[in-house]
Design a protein around this nucleic acid. Structure first.
Lengths: 202, 202, 202, 202
DNA sequence: GATGAATGAGAGTTCATTCAT
DNA sequence: GATGAATGAACTCTCATTCAT
């Protein structure tokens, strides 16, 4: 049955997520993944071409199909780009804050892979990049956001900051909830480092 | 002689840099590195404990001893934190823009490593983190930078943005000089996304 | 029904013939054979013990039951051993010239098998060997064929030559019809290499 | 030292010969070969690309470099093609009669290999083919051998017969020395099956 | 100090075979 | 009878590391 099939693929992905998070991408052998999934080594190859394929699928399912999709939906009904950006930031931290294993895989392990794999992860990230950039562009059109910095570069700041904050949290002891980063991140995006109303950027 | 010794160690590090950049960390075998360095495989083990050790040393030498050191020197004579930050940004892009192989290793390959290695790279990054944070704190004391965002979080934005911009450049076709990212990065840091004097962050 | 049963067995053998010919004995997986036969992998095991069994059956059916049988019938009504030999040669090339897939399996792939399999192919070949030898012996009794070479050795020449000619054809681009080898083979068998009436064998 | 290198390669080939002969090409694992050679598994890969490479080298060394070479030398000083042919036959059986393991590999196991391998064995066999054909052609020019059968076809008879006789001996209990096949083979080549001076080929 | 041949643990992967459905 | 998902033994091959020279 297709039900079954989906189930087993899901089971393998779930097991792989845990193993990748705990042993790292290169320390994760097919054998370990299979054992954790409670299946035979060979069975993995019925559902995935190889270890790369597992990581790519995990990444794509997560980032392209779930995360980027969810963000897109979440900001759909905000007209003001500033509010849309706030919602985007909230979603980012909310998503990664929910599943520490997943976050570890996405933030750390997925970057430990060959050219090959990174190629397979591109569509997912780029979908997210385009979402961020479109928010920035909307803000520029609305006259809220500066136009002397390209939306591409603004996106690099936004994504770079969010990414660094999540990575930092993943590698930390996680004493604070990730969601509490929404406020500082948003403030920095909007007004930068400047003391409000008091100072200028020289 | 320690002179000689230093020489050979340097030669190996230089070779490793190229091989890591071209083949990736996991695709780089000791054999390849030794061949490129023009020495025997076994000789590598006279200077390094293992492959991990090479990467850690390469990273530490570069980031802790050269890069962070150089940044520290460069901002030493700026009193105004805003100008110090500008100089820091300039140094960051200047440093990584000069050596594409090195940049690739630092931005991409060094993240493809085990817990172990990342542990060894910590001192270097943290030295740089502290430099950034001290600039921010100085700005706060001077009344230029906001105090409602911690220096730690501001640092995450600054480092995250710079890092993302370098990574983006490394993975691109490098048609633009990295140094031209100084201006957009600095602007975003200082005033964020807002249109100057026209808009507010809601 | 035995009819049905026979049908499916036949279908599997036919599929196996093609797959063996195209992928080689060792490159032919049960899975490939089943797919080609349009049945499930497991079904193969209802009709055959294993892959070896398929090859042995294919060989035996072909060589013992069809080919040797047909040759035996064909030479039955020739009294003169020389004419019987000619007919045997004609049959040999005719049979293998008709089915290139089969020829490939018999000439090439069936020799890529373990002791085991070769054991199972013996009865078929030996039946053919006995046919050849009996023709030679008849020729000796009739005073046509030499008696200073044993029928066993003469058979080795005859079979070795025919076999080499078929193999050669199978591995070639097959621009010539195999049947045209009847004449040179027969001539060489009968009078050997000597120029007729002119020369002696020293 | 190059001496050493040659030694170890030779040791592996010798071990492989025995293992191929005893377990068959497909039953021979690299592990078995290494164990028999008294070396580590990995060492095999310092000298050979893979199992195929071992068989190809074994075959080429034996057939192209030793056997065909030796035959070429042996017949060099015979002017009369009939005597050259006799010497060729003698050499063939002498060579294969000396080393039963080698014969088994050449006659049986080397035919159990993929397209790939057979391609690598071609140069060796074809060198031998050309030697046989050149003897036949010389005989034709001398007026001793028939011209109504091409040298190519005559070669197929000669090689096919010799090959079949060796195979037959290899698969037998080897109660007779292979060298005693020289006489019947030569007789059949020269005068075929006909009773001398008494009969005709119809 | 320098070498590089040798090692063997351990990875990925295939596929004949089984068995619950 | 028919299926094909699941299995796991067994294989090939790589490469960090050692050590006799």
């Amino acid at each position: 049955m297709s039900k079954r099939n989906g189930d087993k693929k899901e089971i393998i992905l779930e097991a792989a997520k845990i193993v990748f998070a705990e042993s790292g991408y290169h320390g994760a052998s097919i054998s370990k993944i299979a054992k954790r999934a409670g299946i035979g080594d060979g069975t993995v190859y019925l559902y995935f071409k190889n270890k790369e394929d597992i990581l790519i699928t995990l990444f794509h399912d997560t980032i392209h199909n779930k995360f980027a999709e969810q963000v897109e939906q979440a900001i759909r009904y905000y007209d003001d780009a500033r509010l849309a950006l706030l919602e985007l930031v909230r979603n980012h931290f909310d998503f990664f804050g929910r599943d520490i294993h997943l976050s570890r895989v996405i933030q750390i392990e997925s970057r430990q892979s060959e050219q090959n794999v990174r190629e397979g992860m591109k569509p997912g990230i780029q979908k997210y990049f385009r979402i961020i950039e479109s928010v920035v562009e909307r803000g520029q059109e609305q006259g809220h956001f500066r136009k002397d910095v390209s939306s591409r570069n603004s996106r690099k700041m936004i994504f770079g900051t969010l990414d660094e904050m999540v990575t930092s949290w993943v590698l930390s002891t996680k004493e604070y909830p990730l969601i509490q980063m929404v406020e500082p991140a948003y403030k920095l995006f909007i007004q930068g480092l400047l003391e409000c109303g008091k100072s200028d950027g020289i």
